[in-house]
Computed example of a mutant assay.
Amino acid sequence: MMYWDTGDSVVDCILQKIEILSDWKEDSDASQVQSLLVALIDIERMLPQAVSRHFKIPHLFVGDAHFTGGDEYRRRLVSNITNAVKEGLGKATADPLLQRNGGAVFDDRPRSRGEEILDAIDTFESERTISALLKLKTATSPTRLQSRVKSIEMLMNRKRPYGNQDPEVAMLGELYRLRQEAKEYHSQMA
């Protein structure tokens, strides 16, 4: 796996996700191909021009052809997509503008869902109010991160130790994990 350091943490996360998708197995069933297509469509929408110009990914809007087209069609589709993604990654790696302080401009990238969640975490950490908690709930809805927010809400009202931890220490642990997991949502538009 390559180390991406463009100077923009969202772009770095997206490039890492693209790299993971480039190794998609060709013998995928229709629902797995659907997952690949949806992930790449979401990613394409998030890429700034400085990065997207390296990727010429074909055949993402195929309707239901990957469900009706058979195994050979899916193999070819996945192969074409992963080859194009690998080629784009090679070009992006070689581009000196995409290095930290390389001069690439990323302001044309839309705000990510991960950034929205991280901002809500920052607000909650600084204020610790019901209003900040509601903002955090809204930012994580509907994602699997909601269970972390429910734990934080429970710890916010708890006075007695939680297991062998002070509720504040347990809440800090939940907030840390929530912050780390929020980065997984950088490839989704806010």
Score class of each variant (00 low, 15 high):
residue 93 T to W: 06
residue 115 E to K: 15
residue 17 K to N: 14
residue 94 A to I: 07
residue 126 S to E: 15
residue 111 R to G: 01
residue 101 N to G: 03
residue 30 A to E: 15
residue 32 Q to K: 02
residue 120 A to H: 01
residue 21 L to M: 02
residue 73 Y to K: 02
residue 6 T to L: 09
residue 53 R to D: 07
residue 119 D to I: 08
residue 137 K to D: 09
residue 136 L to Y: 11
residue 74 R to H: 00
residue 8 D to N: 15
residue 90 G to M: 02
residue 89 L to W: 01
residue 41 I to K: 12
residue 45 R to T: 06
residue 34 Q to T: 13
residue 29 D to R: 12
residue 113 R to M: 13
residue 40 L to P: 10
residue 116 E to I: 11
residue 107 D to I: 15
residue 43 I to E: 07
residue 121 I to F: 10
residue 32 Q to V: 12
residue 101 N to T: 06
residue 18 I to V: 11
residue 78 V to G: 10
residue 54 H to R: 07
residue 8 D to A: 08
residue 81 I to Y: 05
residue 59 H to G: 01
residue 113 R to C: 05
residue 11 V to R: 03
residue 27 D to H: 14
residue 82 T to L: 07
residue 80 N to T: 09
residue 50 A to T: 10
residue 30 A to G: 01
residue 41 I to V: 10
residue 109 R to Q: 15
residue 61 F to P: 02
residue 52 S to D: 09
residue 89 L to H: 09
residue 46 M to N: 14
residue 125 E to Q: 14
residue 29 D to M: 06
residue 121 I to Y: 07
residue 40 L to Q: 07
residue 38 V to F: 05
residue 61 F to G: 00
residue 73 Y to M: 10
residue 97 L to T: 08
residue 110 P to W: 12
residue 132 A to C: 15
residue 121 I to D: 13
residue 68 T to E: 13
residue 18 I to N: 08
residue 79 S to H: 05
residue 72 E to R: 04
residue 65 A to N: 04
residue 61 F to Y: 13
residue 34 Q to F: 15
residue 89 L to N: 08
residue 49 Q to G: 15
residue 119 D to G: 09
residue 135 K to T: 12
residue 86 K to M: 13
residue 116 E to H: 15
residue 117 I to F: 03
residue 8 D to Y: 12
residue 56 K to A: 12
residue 133 L to H: 06
residue 22 S to Y: 09
residue 116 E to W: 08
residue 32 Q to G: 02
residue 40 L to W: 05
residue 81 I to F: 01
residue 52 S to T: 03
residue 34 Q to G: 08
residue 119 D to R: 14
residue 92 A to R: 02
residue 44 E to Y: 08
residue 12 D to Y: 03
residue 128 R to I: 04
residue 107 D to P: 03
residue 37 L to Y: 10
residue 79 S to V: 06
residue 71 D to T: 07
residue 57 I to A: 01
residue 45 R to G: 14
residue 115 E to N: 10
residue 82 T to D: 06
residue 51 V to A: 09
residue 55 F to P: 07
residue 46 M to P: 02
residue 88 G to N: 00
residue 91 K to F: 01
residue 43 I to R: 04
residue 110 P to R: 09
residue 100 R to S: 05
residue 51 V to C: 14
residue 47 L to G: 14
residue 62 V to H: 00
residue 68 T to I: 11
residue 130 I to K: 15
residue 56 K to F: 13
residue 6 T to D: 12
residue 78 V to C: 04
residue 125 E to V: 14
residue 8 D to F: 12
residue 126 S to F: 13
residue 112 S to T: 13
residue 118 L to V: 12
residue 14 I to E: 04
residue 14 I to H: 09
residue 58 P to F: 13
residue 39 A to Y: 08
residue 103 G to M: 03
residue 95 D to M: 05
residue 19 E to H: 10
residue 57 I to L: 10
residue 14 I to A: 01
residue 92 A to E: 04
residue 103 G to R: 05
residue 109 R to A: 11
residue 11 V to L: 04
residue 131 S to Q: 10
residue 103 G to E: 05
residue 22 S to H: 01
residue 108 D to V: 15
residue 52 S to W: 02
residue 44 E to T: 14
residue 127 E to S: 15
residue 90 G to V: 00
residue 48 P to G: 10
residue 127 E to M: 13
residue 43 I to S: 09
residue 43 I to D: 06
residue 53 R to V: 15
residue 97 L to R: 12
residue 119 D to A: 15
residue 53 R to P: 04
residue 85 V to G: 11
residue 118 L to C: 06
residue 48 P to K: 03
residue 87 E to G: 08
residue 117 I to E: 00
